[in-house]
Design a binder for these strands. Structure first.
Lengths: 144, 144
DNA sequence: GATATATACTTGATTAGTCAAGTATTATAC
DNA sequence: GTATAATACTTGACTAATCAAGTATATATC
């Protein structure tokens, strides 16, 4: 017998669902040579003012640490997907700016990401994601 | 301008929210010396028939690979939280069975996990989780 | 305007997981 | 009943991230 609340169950379910979903996106996006996290970074850059962000802000947007961002960006720089730009007012800051090659990959990857989204949504009725859907609507109904 | 669908946005949001939420649970559960994934394993064991599961089934329930489970269980065995049990009908199978010490830790950790759940829920109105809440109710309304 | 504190970023060491390959056992097909 | 394939698990090599510490710069305080 479980003695945990419905909300806690939601979080436990979210945790595994996210693990599974992330793996699927990673697998599909691999065709473009990027991970889901890399896709997210490109996405945030593409939608940012002047297509650039401070590294700290990238970290916050993708939920990783600054150090993780440094490590993630290093290969993207080498591939020429992003480039560094200085901030003239604050020498501590190093902007990450979307480069042309990165934008191209991002735009191509969108189609793949959308297709993956569709596949996952289509399978919502079965398996674990079904639980999610139920709990989400409950959550939507009870929160706030 | 973003050109991605609402559903894809949901998944991107879920990804970071889950990253953040997992970190919070991990931080709190550290008071009991366990991670969120370890808590999840104990939970599934506590709710399983005879409080035991095949390693493969544990893997499936927490969304990790069999190899990841082998590695996660090793310290839990050393701590005496779980123990191995053979299957008399199939020698390939090694059950993971919840031990007394593990059950004790699990029951204590539930309180912490519930408190953490409450804290997260309370902050839903602000920040990223607010986006989630909105999207979740939309999702709940549109899916199926 | 010197001192203390805070912020932005990077790096070395570590950790939690993956994947691919290997072992052992069981199930299937002929 | 033997050969083939599938399943359960473990292990070595690797990867993506963390944390703690360090560097450089900027901000606040007095």
């Amino acid at each position: 017998m479980s003695t945990i609340s419905q909300e806690l169950k939601l979080f436990l379910n979210l945790a595994i669902i996210q693990t599974i979903v992330t793996k699927r996106f990673d697998a599909k996006l691999q065709n473009h040579g990027i991970s889901l996290n890399e896709f997210m970074i490109l996405h945030h850059l593409a939608n940012a003012d002047d297509e650039k962000l401070r590294r700290t802000d990238v970290a916050e947007k993708v939920g990783l640490t600054a150090s993780g961002i440094t490590r993630m960006l290093s290969p993207l720089e080498k591939l020429g997907y992003v480039k560094r730009e200085a901030n003239s007012r604050d020498a501590r800051v190093s902007y990450v700016k979307l480069a042309n090659a990165g934008k191209k990959v991002y735009l191509e990857a969108i189609a793949t990401a959308e297709a993956t989204t569709g596949q996952i949504m289509a399978s919502v009725k079965t398996k674990k994601l079904d639980d999610l859907q139920k709990m989400l609507s409950e959550l939507g109904a009870t929160i706030e």
